[in-house]
């Protein structure tokens, strides 16, 4: 536990029970539990907090370097917190052919961030995803899991306004 920095106490305070329960559902040193544990951790926090990665390392007897390797290898994992709304722009083939690139560009210039970043207000995180499988509605964007299909760049900007208005 010595490796954990002081902020981990606050972090663990609220979620302590959930994390404990999560660890208990896998046995110590079970190497193949790594990815499920990371997935569930991200389910709880929205990202992978460093202290939890250290805890995982101790619990599964896997060096922290290896865990970092796995966490950065897979697209699903994030090491930084996400904004309140996660915007996913589909970058699948069908969306690309139907102008998905323009949608991404419109969002990037409107939010002033690049894909993979979060706005300073902490409201929006912009990311791309390989394919959402809703190709018939291409180009597709999801905001907080809600699908918006057959979009034009102008409409995307309007869409953002709607979400900003909610705040």
């Amino acid at each position: 536990m010595s490796k954990i920095c002081c902020c981990s106490k606050d972090l663990l305070a609220g979620q302590d029970e959930k994390i404990q329960k999560l660890f208990r559902s896998y046995s110590k040193g079970e190497e193949n539990a790594l990815i499920p544990i990371l997935q569930e951790t991200q389910g709880i926090y929205g990202y992978l907090p460093k202290p939890i990665l250290y805890l995982t390392s101790e619990y599964l007897h896997i060096p922290i370097g290896k865990i970092y390797g796995v966490a950065t290898f897979y697209n699903q994992f994030r090491l930084k917190p996400v904004g309140k709304y996660l915007i996913q722009v589909c970058a699948g083939t069908a969306c690309h052919v139907r102008g998905g690139g323009l949608i991404l560009q419109a969002l990037e210039s409107e939010l002033g961030i690049k894909a993979g970043e979060t706005t300073q207000s902490g409201l929006f995180t912009l990311s791309t995803v390989a394919c959402l499988g809703a190709c018939s509605m291409a180009p597709v964007v999801t905001i907080d899991g809600d699908f918006h299909g057959r979009l034009q760049p102008k409409e995307v900007v309007k869409l953002l306004r709607d979400y900003e208005m909610k705040e």
Partner: peptide, 25 residues
């Protein structure tokens, strides 16, 4: 059930096996 974590290469069978084992795919 094992959930993939978003890596296209894991569709390759040996990479998929590595991923189930908890390693980089």
């Amino acid at each position: 059930l094992k959930m993939g974590a978003g890596a296209f290469v894991c569709g390759e069978e040996t990479a998929l096996i590595a991923s189930i084992e908890g390693k980089r795919g």
